[in-house]
Every structure is written in structure tokens, then in C-alpha cells.
Write a protein that binds this DNA or RNA. Structure first.
Length: 484
RNA sequence: CGGGGUGUAGCGCAGCCCGGUUAGCGCAUCUGGUUUGGGACCAGAGGGUCGCAGGUUCGAAUCCUGCCACCCCGACCA
């Protein structure tokens, strides 16, 4: 494991052409290649949301301050990290000091740049919901949000980030809880199938719960440096927001009741997760399902006659692979050597690289290289197109298995406080340990070790034990880790 | 907001302690040529208000004061 992990990671991101720090504190520029990864993530999630009955909509970036004050715990949770718009105009300074904010253009009510959209959305829902016939509302929005964090980290915690946020309204508590569970399952399925990232689904403890939620479900993933990353959350909001925004409906029996709510979100942090879960010393390793370029073809030649012949063969291979729905790049730029291109596409994480030269043309062969194992084989061109789809599947599986085994090896079942500290200091990773269920104990553990309860896993067997900290009885183990 | 560190070419850095020619190196860029099966080589060229503002001095990237920005470690968090 790398000691200078964060340094290595920052270098990688910059070298990999993914992002660089902008002049604005804690914001990121997502360069085209990084954005292409986000577009793949978006496309897959959007498909899954629609398959589960959701539709997309868009709400304003600006939220009047008064909206925020309506839900008490929500304000408390977000107040400390809001960017606020106070004026709407600039003017030339009379003393010639350039452009200044026009003091006459002060807004009567300040506008908050959304850190999340519950408040403005529930303000709208009030007008959309009168009867049980208006329910459920199942809306998702793709948006940017701003959270003025004290400390930022590229991809993992930037001041502005892109995400999707789902906001649903339901007639019954049961239906809302079912929705909350459904969406955490969608996230888990996405993480495991598309991102090749094994995750643990579970409940958040009261301390870690979303501001304004009754219950928060989360998926937690383990990064290669032994730290946990919260990869997606789904919240059961109860009737908190409905009450705060006075959203009532008439049910089938004619009785008036408050609406039940959920919200769920997943952000560009996932790009960071992808990088930190799968990368090696040569750069990114992208799972084929999310790779903007799945196959790259690099020609090797000396003369322009050779290149012409290679162009012909390569373009045909490219077309044949594209017919299978694959994304293929043929890189015959002559300003870089093949060796340079090999290294560059490895840095970018392209799953499969094909190299073809005069020698191959003679033998009717082609070199196939895998990014995940860095292995190479030479196969007959005739068999190539039939070979690639299966190879991509295999790579996808292999990346998942590698991450799964890593997590398995780094999940420690500990029973004593000494052991707990030893594991944290020497190995890191996930710790499954008993906990007495109190916020007090959780807080003490956090202060002493920086480890928090990542989640109370859904699928953990009942097991009598004693709290690793207080020694009080516990009915099951929970997941501890140091996290991002 | 507390503790530490860094600001010198597009990027990465040396020079600063101990002030003194025209501020240097690697990568990248441009031109010409030779190259191309794992990050090519040779020759030449362009590119700098040394973070900003004061001060000390005959003379400041270098010393002093103030400010600003960024990074790392905490508190906060997706």
C-alpha cells in the first residue's frame, strides 16, 4: 500500500487528464476524458431510474433563505456550508478601483446556492399534491450543488459537484420505505455491476444520518488505501419535509394526511471511487462497462506505405467491433511513438489495447493486451472480433473479483478494544465489531480512533457479543472504518 | 478557524541560509533532420513583472514587514 497515497492520486488525476484544480477554491475542472466517464455513469443510472418508474425534472439553483429555515435539523446540517447570494449587480467603482458590488443592488432576501434540493422541491410539491391520485411523485434531477466545505479533496469532496438527486412523495409510510430500499438496491447493483465495486449496504447510525432524515441507507466501499468511501445514500424522510412545507393530501377515505418522502443521491465522487478502488502504478484501470474507450488500436509502422495498409486493416477491425456496440479508438497519429501511446492508454485505463504492425499483417495476427492484468497475447485477426466481447466481460469480472478479494482480505472481525486499535493503526480496512447501540459510545470511538460506524449492514447474522468499547451486550456486528 | 509547508516559464523544480554579471535545469512547445514492436535521438529557437505591496541597501528571487493564494494535518462532510 502506498504511503503517499493522496499525492499519488492527485498526480494520477492530473496526469490522467481527468481534472485539475481551478482558481476557485475547492472546485474542479472535469476534463473531457473524466467527463466522458461521468457520462457513462449518468447513462447507466438514468436507464436504471427510468426502469424503476422515475422521470427527470429540473429545479432552480437558487433557494430563498426562508425555505431553508423551515426544517430545523436540515438547517442545522447545512447552514455551515452554504454559499449565499446577496447582490445582483456590479458597477464601476467611482474611485477608479475597477468593478465592485453595487451596494444599491442588495437582495431583500438572500439566495442560497443549493447544497441539496429538498427544500425547493418540497416547496413545489405543495402545489402539485392535493389527493392520493397525485401520488406517488417519482422525480430525479441531474444537477450541480455547492457545499462550502472547510477542506476539499479532488473528486471526493469538492466545493461544487455534479450529482443526481431523487425526490419522491408517497401516500404511505410503507411505500416510502419500500422506495428508499429500492433505490439503495439500485445503487448497489450499479456499483457492483457497472463499477466493478463491491459495496456493503446498510443503515447509517443516528450520528451519520442525513440532516432531516428518519433513516439513511448507504452503500460503503473500501478503497485500496484501507479507507472507506460512502458511495451513495438513500434517505427515508418520513413526514418531516411534508410537515415543514405543509404538504397534505386527501387519502382514499377522505382523511387529510401529510405526504411521506424519500430522497437519494449519487455524485461525481464515484469517479474518485473508480480511481481509488481499481488503479495501479501505471494509472487508471477502468471497468469495461464504464470505459469511454473500450478498445484502442495502435498501429506500428516505419513507412507511409506500411501505415496505409495498417489503416485499411485497422479501420475494418474498428468498424466490425463498433457493430457489436463497442467504443473503439484507432490512434494513428504520427506525432507519438507506439511506446508512448501504450503508456498513455494505460494511464487512461483503456481495458483492451490492440497493436498491429507489418509483421502482424504478414502473419494475419494482432496483439491483444489487457489493462487489468497487463498481459499480452497474439491471436489470429480472423478470431479477433469474436474474441473481444468475451474478453471485456472477463476483464469486468476480474476487476470486480480483485476488488472483492481485497475487501475480503481487509475486513477484520475484532472482539477487543486492543485489537480494534491494532487493526486501525497497522492494516486499516473494514472492521466488523460489536457496538452497544449508543451514540455516546460511537462518538467516543470516533474521538479516540477517527473510525466511525460506516453502516449497520442489512445482511449480518444475529450474533450475541459485547461492545468492543463499553463491554455492554450487543446483538450484531456493525461496520467500522476510517473514511473519506 | 488552529498547526505545518510552499509560491521562480504551460507543468515539475534548483537557486534563497551566506544579497553582486544577462535567473537556471528537466518535461512540454516550435523549426529542421534522423526515428517508430514499450514513454526515441541530434541540432537550434521561443517562452519569466522570481505571488503582491512596502522597506533596508550602491545593488534584492535572496534580508525585513505586511498582505494574498495554494497544499498538507485537524474540526466539518457525499
Amino acid at each position: 500500500m502506498e504511503d503517499n497515497y493522496s499525492q499519488w492520486y492527485n498526480d494520477l488525476v492530473i496526469k490522467a487528464d481527468l481534472a485539475e484544480n481551478s482558481a476557485v477554491r475547492g472546485c474542479m475542472i472535469i476534463k473531457p476524458y473524466g467527463y466522458a466517464i461521468w457520462e457513462k455513469i449518468q447513462a447507466e443510472l438514468d436507464r436504471m431510474f427510468k426502469a424503476t418508474g422515475h422521470v427527470n425534472a429540473y429545479f432552480p439553483l437558487f433557494i430563498p433563505k426562508s425555505f431553508f429555515t423551515k426544517e430545523a435539523s436540515h438547517v442545522e446540517g447545512f447552514a455551515k456550508e452554504c454559499a449565499v447570494v446577496t447582490h445582483y449587480r456590479l458597477k464601476n467603482d467611482e474611485n477608479g478601483k475597477g468593478i465592485i458590488v453595487d451596494p444599491d443592488a442588495k437582495l431583500e432576501e438572500e439566495l442560497i446556492i443549493r447544497p441539496t434540493s429538498e427544500t425547493i422541491i418540497w416547496h413545489s410539491y405543495k402545489n402539485w399534491i392535493q389527493s392520493y391520485r397525485d401520488l406517488p411523485i417519482l422525480i430525479n434531477q441531474w444537477a450541480n450543488v455547492v457545499r462550502w466545505e472547510m477542506r476539499t479533496r479532488l473528486f471526493l469532496r469538492t466545493a461544487e459537484f455534479l450529482w443526481q438527486e431523487g425526490h419522491t412523495a408517497h401516500a404511505t409510510k410503507e411505500e416510502a420505505i419500500e422506495e428508499t430500499e429500492k433505490m439503495i438496491n439500485v445503487y448497489a447493483e450499479f456499483a457492483e455491476n457497472s463499477m466493478a465495486l463491491p459495496v456493503i449496504k446498510g443503515y447509517k447510525s443516528a450520528n451519520e444520518r442525513f440532516a432531516g432524515a428518519i433513516d439513511t441507507y448507504a452503500i460503503e466501499a473500501l478503497m485500496q488505501d484501507g479507507k472507506a468511501l460512502q458511495a451513495g445514500t438513500s434517505h427515508f424522510l418520513g413526514q418531516n419535509f411534508a410537515k415543514a412545507f405543509d404538504v397534505q393530501f386527501t387519502d382514499k377515505t377522505g382523511k387529510l394526511d401529510y405526504v411521506w418522502a424519500t430522497s437519494w443521491g449519487l455524485s461525481t465522487r464515484m469517479i474518485g471511487a473508480l480511481i481509488m478502488a481499481h488503479s495501479d502504478n501505471k494509472g487508471l484501470v477502468l471497468p469495461p462497462k464504464l470505459a469511454p474507450i473500450q478498445v484502442v488500436i495502435v498501429p506500428i509502422y516505419k513507412t507511409s506505405e506500411q501505415l496505409e495498409k495498417l489503416n485499411e486493416t485497422s479501420e475494418k477491425i474498428k468498424k466490425d467491433l463498433e457493430k457489436l456496440g463497442l467504443s473503439v479508438k484507432y490512434d494513428n497519429r504520427d506525432n507519438n511513438t507506439p511506446g508512448w501511446k501504450f503508456a498513455d492508454y494505460e494511464l487512461k485505463g483503456v481495458p483492451v489495447r490492440l497493436a498491429i504492425g507489418p509483421r502482424d499483417l504478414e502473419n494475419k495476427t494482432i496483439e491483444v493486451a489487457r489493462r487489468d492484468t497487463l498481459s499480452k497475447e497474439t491471436i489470429s485477426i480472423d478470431k479477433l472480433v469474436g474474441h473481444i466481447p468475451g474478453l471485456l466481460d472477463e476483464i469486468q469480472k476480474n476487476i470486480y473479483n480483485k476488488a472483492f478479494n481485497f475487501r475480503k482480505e481487509n475486513t477484520h472481525y475484532v472482539n477487543t478494544w486492543t485489537e480494534f486499535n491494532e487493526v486501525l493503526d497497522n492494516k486499516g480496512g473494514f472492521i466488523m465489531a460489536h457496538w452497544d447501540g449508543t451514540s455516546e459510545t460511537e462518538e467516543k470511538i470516533k474521538v479516540e480512533t477517527k473510525a466511525t460506524i460506516r453502516c449497520i449492514p442489512f445482511e449480518t447474522p444475529d450474533e450475541a457479543g459485547k461492545c468492543v468499547y463499553s463491554g455492554k451486550p450487543s446483538g450484531r456486528r456493525v461496520l467500522f472504518a476510517r473514511s473519506y
